[in-house]
Structures are given as C-alpha cells and as structure tokens.
Design a protein around this nucleic acid. Structure first.
Lengths: 334, 334
DNA sequence: CTGAAAGCGCTTACAG
DNA sequence: CTGAAAGCGCTTACAG
C-alpha cells in the first residue's frame, strides 16, 4: 500500500509540488481558479492526506504540546487535562498526556521524550524533582507552564488554586456549624508540594482566626498508605477531632473507608469536608461537602498561557502565578 | 536557542554524520572504540537529543500508536487506555489517546488526524459510525485493533468482554439470593453497541434459564439523561422489580442517584449489581456488588495484538475476536 | 499565476 | 572502520 504523496497529486493535477503545497496551505491568492479546482479534485480522488511528520520537520513546529501530570490518579489532573485538550483543539493543537506517577525520574524521561518529539511547549504539574531541567528550559526560552504547584527558585508561572482560601472556606464552614476540634489529613508533605503545604498553612491560619486551638496531633501529612493508621491514632486521642478536612480526593477516600470500616456516621460521629469535588460527592450517603477547584478554568488558562508563549517566541521574563478561587459546595457531611 | 543537530555533533567529534547516526542506532559493530567514546562525550557535552520527527520521516515509523476511545467517561476506557500505555512503554512505543465522545464525526477526524501524523497503528473503541473508514484501513492493511465492540461486516479482531456471561453471573447471583423480579438498565441500544446488546441478550437467556419471567417493562435501554425517568416508570409498575442490573458504570450511577433521591435502602428496597467495578464500590454504603471486567488484561492484549500486527507488516486476514472473563465481586448491595 | 531549487534533520545502502 | 550521496515528504523564498 504505497503512500500517496504530494508528488502524486502534483503529477496527476499537472502542476508542480509547490503549487499543491500552496493549495494545502490555503494560499490561493495567486492561484488560478481552475488550478485550484483541479487540485481539489485530485486530492479527493486519491484520498490524499498530507504527511504531518514531513511538514513538522520543515516548519519546525509540530502543533502539538505535551502535558506531564504529576499523578493522574487525582481527579484534578484528569479534569484539568481534559480542559487543556479542549482549548488546544480549538487552536488546532494536539495534546500528548503523560503521567509522571509522582516520580521525578519518569518526569525527566517524559520531558526529554516530548522535547525530542519536538512538541512546541509543555504544561507540567511539576514533581519538583528536576530543577536543573526546569531551569534549562527557562534559559533556552522553551515554552513551559506549571500547573497546581510552583517550584522554589524557578520563575515559571504556575496556574494554581488559592489553597489557603480553600482551607479557610472549609474551616469557616466547620466553625459556623459549631465544630471546634478540627483536624486535617493530607498526603505526604515531605517533598513540600505546594498545595499540601499551603492547605495546611491555611488550616492553621483559619483555626487561629477563629480562636480555635491548633493541636499538632490533629494534623496528619502522611503517605496514602499510612492514612488509615494516622486516622486510628487520631481517633484514639483523649479528645479526638469531631471534624476532618481532607486535603485532596485521595485523602478523602481514605477517610471514607475509615468511616465505613469503623461504622461511624457522618456527620454525627465525624464531620468531613474534602478539597476536590469528587464525582460521587453528590450521591454518596451522606452527600459530601467539598471545596471545588475550578478545574475547567484552570486548564483553559494553562493552555492559553502556553499557547501565547508559543506564539510570541519571546516568552521573556515569566509572568506571575495565577491563582484561582475555590468554591464551597455545601452538602450533608458537615 | 538554535537547535543542536547531528551535524554539530559530527563536526565537533570530527567524524561524519553517518558515523554519529550509527552510534545513535547502536550499530557499534565496526566502530572504533575511541570514535565511540568521542561521540559519546560530545553528545553529553552538547546535551544533544536526536530529532525524532526527522528520524520518523526517514524511517517511516513514528513508534507511536493512536488510541481512540468511544467515550472516556466510562471507567473501562480509562483503565484499558492506561494498560495499553503501560505495555507500549515497555516496547518503546508512544501512545496518543483521543476521545470520540460517542460521535462518529469526531472519531473520523481523529482517525484521519492520527494517520496524517503517521502513527504506526490504531486501537479503536469503535462508535460503529465509520464503516467505510474501517473498511479502507482493512483493505490498506493498516494495523487496527478494536476494543469493547465489534462492527458488523468488518472483520477486524476485537478485544471484548464475554458480555453474556457478565449478565449471567449477575442474574445467577440475584437468583441465588431469592430475587425473582429482576430488571436491567443500560444506556441506549439504538446504535446496537455490542456490549449493550449482548448484555441484554445475556440477561434474557439467564432469566429464562432460571425459569424467571421476562417482563419487557423491566428492560430499559435509554439515553443516560432518560434513565431517571425510566426508573420511575419501573417503580410505578404494579409489580416493580426488586433487583436491577446496571449495564455499565454510568447506568449504575444513575441508579444510585435514584435510590438516594427516593430514600430507598439497598438491598432491602432494591438490590443492585453493576457491570464495571467502579472505584467507589468498596466504600459506598452499602458496598456495591459488581461484575468486574479484566481491564488490565484486555488493554494488554489489545496492545500486544496491535504491536504484533505492526511488526509483521502482513496483518493478512484478521484474527478472531478475543473474549475475556468477567468476575463477580460480591459485596452488600444484593 | 506557477515552477525549480534548496533545505528541514535524520538514516541507509554503498564504496573504499 | 568511516564518509559521500541520496532521499524521506514536505515548505519556502525566489525567479520568471
């Protein structure tokens, strides 16, 4: 099944390859009407499709961007990626999505692979573990946008939630429902991942603002596999918390499993708010109060910022970070 | 930031471009040890990365496959795609995932786009609406594998669940728990999508095998937006069903919303089994009995079959369909 | 209004 | 063991 190339079309339409190329790129300005029609016909007849690989090589642009997500298991990542894809589609850009699985090594491999594939730019949910690489891309003026997290010392603008505010909304809601002993559970904070750090920080500030005591035993930042254990520790405290803020969707799921396993009732035995509006929040029993991230808007912004960097060529000094507003979705778990 | 090319490496290492290329492709056979080391050094020094686009053009292989999913909202699609990616990774193939959103038009655009991008093969969860295109690919001997569904008259092998068995497992389980009035709800069957058709068929056969009456009012195949309505109709029957089989994850969610809205208790008021082992099944209240698909194995098989077609060049007459065994996961909703 | 020529960055016989 | 040459399928000035 030999491939049909531009030469075949040219030959058959009795014009030169250049002319066919002009046609393909819609430069009809100086093209005779009949030439145009003839080419059109032949293309139809042969079912010709231009080879994008060849075009990319010549044009030095693949009209493709790469998205490297720190961990696709987070609902947030999936939704943001989908929104990025939508925007790119509108601009005739393609998207390749990769999952770094929270491993800097994988992230590195993907960055190198995608650049070797000549993607025009990269949207990264950075693991934080490849500062040298991030820095190099910045120096080379290669278009990059961060999402969800920022990296110390790397002035690449990032699209993030106002994480402090997210915690504040949650604590306010707990407080206004009369809760005083409020805990927070997030996945591990060891690598100082922006949202986790900021959410715990926001929790502390909000508690203080309400004049509520901050008990270090109420603050758990551990690996996902250790959350059950952490919850048991909390429950065995002389004064266990009556309410818990889940730092993200995965932490929330662990809490729900815990509640179920120990036959607790929400919110009577334990009130819960989760950051990230999980899919089942609205039909769980009870329905779950969440702090939603505007994932759609964030993805859109990320794509737009990147595409504009790609267009401009001169991404010069990087812009500021962008912060998005979280939203409290009241349901029955508080 | 001018790009570093193979010429730069060659020049600096004082060899010809061919030699560098040999090095890159690990044809060291006849290469002097010092040449090899020199090239290695220079590549390191310059941070050279070969341009994959150029390589692909020459080699007529992008080492990339496309995956077009009918509807990414199904958990099944996500899991299978992820498994495909894993296998491809092992074989040094890249994966581009696209979502046809159940629209044949989008599917068509993606097929054309991916082929223009010269992907080496395609894994398609077919919408069924592009028979001409499927047929053409078959005739051109272009490597394609179907997943989840088969298409009448298009002998491209497909990786599918044993759907009849899935229904049978569910009905057996209902029956052995004493249920007699059993319904089934699937998303619309109008386009005769394989799994839906087969699951309803399997339901009928299994009911018959148990000597249970088949009431057409117990069988609902409607668009996702009309499921609530259909459930209300069922509930208002003189003899409403005591148990319902959800044809897939989205149907299950609708049923759970219904149960919640009408304050029913599972399984007392309504017993439920869902095909597709949804993420929250194990911590929902009650936990939900499901029929799990071996998504991991199915994705693996799809990738392997496609890659072997790609390797062989001669995909000749297409192989058979592959059927995978569903598995009953007993929980508390029955 | 259209064509000849050069070139994008690689790889691959082939010659020596 | 290494290099010169041709070519993958396009696009892009440039000439006419």
């Amino acid at each position: 099944m030999k491939n049909i190339t531009i030469s075949d079309v040219a030959e058959r339409a009795k014009v030169s390859r250049s002319t066919v190329s002009q046609y393909l790129n819609q430069r009809y300005d100086y093209m005779g009407e009949k030439t145009k029609l003839r080419i059109e016909e032949v293309i139809e007849e042969l079912g010709y499709q231009p080879n994008i690989v060849a075009r990319s090589l010549k044009q030095k642009s693949t009209k493709t961007i790469g998205v490297i997500v720190a961990n696709i298991l987070h609902n947030f990542s999936t939704e943001v990626s989908r929104s990025i894809e939508d925007v790119c589609n509108d601009y005739d850009f393609h998207t390749i999505i990769c999952n770094a699985d929270d491993e800097p090594k994988k992230e590195k491999r993907y960055i190198e692979m995608l650049r070797a594939k000549q993607v025009d730019g990269l949207i990264i949910f950075p693991t934080g573990g490849n500062k040298d690489l991030y820095k190099r891309m910045l120096e080379e003026n290669y278009p990059v946008v961060f999402v969800d997290r920022s990296v110390d010392g790397i002035p690449i603008s990032s699209i993030m939630l106002d994480n402090e505010k997210a915690s504040t909304l949650a604590i306010n809601h707990f407080a206004s429902n009369g809760y005083k002993r409020i805990g927070i559970v997030t996945t591990s904070i060891l690598q100082s991942v922006t949202p986790r750090v900021e959410r715990v920080e926001g929790y502390r500030n909000a508690m203080q603002a309400h004049g509520l005591p901050i008990d270090e035993d109420y603050i758990k930042s551990v690996n996902i596999g250790e959350i059950q254990e952490a919850l048991i520790e909390m429950a065995n405290l002389p004064n266990p918390p009556e309410a818990i803020l889940a730092g993200n969707d995965l932490a929330l799921i662990e809490i729900l499993k815990f509640v179920k396993k120990h036959n607790l009732t929400m919110p009577k035995d334990l009130a819960v708010i989760g950051i990230d509006d999980v899919s089942f929040a609205s039909f769980y029993s009870p329905t779950i109060t969440t702090i939603a991230q505007p994932t759609f808007k964030m993805g859109k912004k990320a794509a737009e910022v990147l595409l504009s960097k790609i267009q401009k060529e001169e991404s010069k000094d990087d812009g500021p970070d962008y912060r998005f507003e979280p939203e409290l979705v009241c349901r029955d778990s508080v």
